[in-house]
Design a protein around this nucleic acid. Structure first.
Length: 275
DNA sequence: GCGATCCTGGCC
DNA sequence: GGCCAGGATCGC
């Protein structure tokens, strides 16, 4: 469900609650705890979350001893609620705070991830170590981006964007939106794409994600931030889910739906665009 | 590269 | 009952 803008919005909604002293940790029997972290999680009791960072679609809750890492997968939610709020179905993790609030992780499909890292940036966890740069990293120049893209010459541009090792945090919605902003055909292969077009693609990624963050993420069904607030980006999407627009087409690429505007997203520049 | 797979829920 | 879903990993 959540991509980078939604995760960043959740992070910002959580920040007013830190620092937060942890007074208890509860785990469900089927919580998606990875990398052998199950036995370590209860030992977070007594430590304090000093800050919350984000890396791609991962949230990093930093304590003085370890970093709690959470990925929301397709259906995960994080909510902060008063401690006496009844737990809904599919609650897998509860972190109780001294403030008498608790942080609740709810994930019906369990495609998410809960893990403990030993370092603040969590690079000791494989899924984080493999991430590409952040979209707003000043070191991510057009040249650097092109070089990273060229390692995946066989991929379609759509598949390239979904690959977290190229740029971290882009998912299905913002991949479609980024390709629209860059005026590129999602089926086009990296191999056949000029550096200038890849430069436009990087700009498209930045435009799409920045807009998403500005509007508090996209709520198509059930995404909300940690206070239960819905996002507003769904009102500004140009292609994703725009079945109401006659010029918008959809296709399936490696099992995911791509939404695009064939009139605008051309493999080669039209006369009008070249002028 | 791409399809199958991990899961549940909502909708037709 | 079948299909779809905002993700990522694992095999061929």
């Amino acid at each position: 469900m959540p991509e980078l803008p939604e995760v960043e919005t959740i992070r910002r909604s959580l920040m007013p609650h830190v620092p937060a002293q942890i007074t208890g940790v509860g785990l469900s029997a089927v919580a998606p705890v990875r990398h052998g972290s199950r036995s370590y999680l209860p030992t977070l009791r007594g430590s304090t979350i000093g800050t919350i960072a984000r890396r791609g679609k991962f949230l990093l809750f930093r304590t003085e001893r370890a970093t709690l890492v959470v990925h929301l997968g397709m259906s995960g939610r994080l909510l902060v609620v008063p401690a006496d709020t009844p737990a809904p179905k599919h609650t897998h993790l509860e972190i109780r705070f001294a403030s008498r609030h608790l942080l609740r992780y709810i994930d019906p499909r369990r495609f998410g991830l809960i893990a403990i890292a030993r370092t603040p940036d969590a690079t000791d966890l494989p899924p984080i170590a493999g991430l590409g740069p952040e979209f707003d990293d000043p070191l991510l120049t057009a040249e650097n981006f092109c070089a990273r893209c060229r390692r995946h010459n066989g991929l379609s541009l759509k598949a390239l964007l979904l690959h977290q090792g190229v740029v971290a945090g882009v998912g299905n919605i913002y991949a479609c939106e980024a390709l629209y902003h860059a005026r590129l055909d999602p089926r086009q292969r990296v191999r056949g794409t000029h550096d200038a077009a890849l430069g436009r693609l990087l700009d498209g990624i930045r435009t799409a994600l920045t807009l998403g963050i500005r509007h508090g993420g996209t709520t198509l069904r059930d995404y909300v931030d940690s206070s239960g607030q819905r996002g507003g980006m769904q009102h500004f999407l140009q292609v994703y889910g725009r079945a109401d627009q006659p010029q918008i087409a959809r296709l399936t690429q490696s099992g995911r739906t791509t939404w695009w505007n064939p009139a605008v997203q051309q493999s080669r520049p039209t006369t009008a665009q070249a002028a």
